[in-house]
Design a protein around this nucleic acid. Structure first.
Lengths: 231, 231
DNA sequence: AACTACGACAACTTTTTTATTGATGTACAT
DNA sequence: ATGTACATCAATAAAAAAGTTGTCGTAGTT
């Protein structure tokens, strides 16, 4: 019997992703030997906040939602994780545990690399390290934006931000809105589900967006941006 | 701001579980410093088949379902994980990855111990090791039973086995059947959901069980056992 | 060839989850 | 004190998932 979900060979774009292009043959080999590939099905957790993190995840295919968990079932959505992105990078450098959870919103083909291998490669391959740092910096910057949004904006601005963010993913993932419930959107904006529903209706009435079941069409991008800025 | 889900102190039965009673003060300290505690919510994965396993999970509270994943969305349920049980023990000794998935069927308070700590304690505390081995052996034996069931029994025997197994958990967890769907039961028996539904009805007609929505009452234990034996 | 033991599919019903709406309460700002 | 910006609750509607049943096909048995 052969293992079913962990075969190396059945996924052609193995280490084809841009960020691995700078690796030497040896380094590719190191990654290859210390990696495993897993299919996360829609609904599976890629990471669970608080569990030990001994590896980094790299999404090859599929979409996931990253969120932080608070008390009594509150969740706050941070971002949509796309193919080509890492999850749990901080485990390599600092914290021993994942500081957020993430869940597949479509089936996700992911590979996992043990953190020691990543650390080793960064040590010896500056270009690769630079790429990692770049990603890190960007995530960090996004976090600041999010923080600002949560601290200073109110409902309208927040949901506008959320809509703009999700809409920005639509080019690559036209089905993205269908994958998110009203609660998911609310949790991106950090407002109650009911408020989200009401605001969406109100935005629709004002001709900013169109609601087609779960799909949302941004009609007046400019004005949404305005609302986002006003806060 | 204090961390929300990982506090040490907010769960009194910390290391009260029987299997930790033989630990010395030092050993308790070792566990304590290399553990983290996490609340898995209903539906969260405790483990995902194929991911790197650098720790062992110990369930303090709540129930989970352990299963193996096959091709195209087939899952086969292995057991219900109860409080006081370990998940992912094999990661300590052998395989570097979890060889099964598990998912919380109620909220689960769990603590995670890094495998090196467990290994260290086993090295120095034979009694503790013995307990671990005992668990291991039992799980192993159960696996053989399962294998036999799957290989040699047919529908009636399989679903009878499943009913008897779940029923055996009912004393401690009266709500257990309500936590499982027909598909879950079918996946314990390794048969199709439709077959499971039909068999349950037929067992009810024959007076072996009573179906009250999702709850199932085993009426004729003896005869079910008979069916299980006949295969 | 007829039979048995299933799984797969389709149609349908029931249950559960998600979405929606209005009403009420509260804290904070003006 | 009054208004604004929400959350929360409750009631309901709509959508999705789970459960049910009958029919059929196929593979292995007798």
């Amino acid at each position: 019997m052969k293992p079913i979900l962990e075969t190396d060979t059945d996924f052609f774009c193995d280490l084809q992703a841009p960020c691995f292009q700078t690796l030497t043959t040896d380094e590719v080999e190191l990654v290859r030997t210390s990696k495993t590939q897993v299919l996360f099905r829609k609904g599976d957790n890629l990471t669970k906040q608080g569990t030990f993190a001994s590896y980094v995840l790299f999404v090859i295919k599929g979409l996931a939602r990253q969120y932080v968990e608070g008390d009594n079932n509150k969740t706050f959505n941070l971002r949509i994780i796309k193919p080509g992105e890492f999850v749990g990078l901080s485990s390599v450098f600092a914290k021993n545990t994942f500081n957020y959870s993430s869940v597949a919103i479509t089936d996700c083909q992911v590979f996992l690399v043990e953190k020691e291998a990543i650390a080793q490669i960064i040590r010896q391959n500056g270009t690769f390290g630079l790429g990692i740092i770049r990603r890190y910096v960007e995530q960090n910057s996004n976090l600041y934006d999010t923080l600002r949004t949560v601290m200073y904006k109110q409902m309208n601005g927040r949901i506008a931000d959320t809509l703009l963010y999700i809409d920005s993913l639509k080019a690559e993932n036209p089905e993205i809105f269908q994958l998110l419930s009203r609660k998911d959107l609310a949790d991106f904006a950090g407002i109650s589900t009911e408020s989200a529903v009401k605001l969406l209706k109100s935005f629709e009435k004002d001709g900013l967006i169109e609601l087609h079941e779960k799909n949302i069409l941004v009609v007046n991008h400019r004005e949404l941006l305005e609302i986002s800025k006003k806060g």
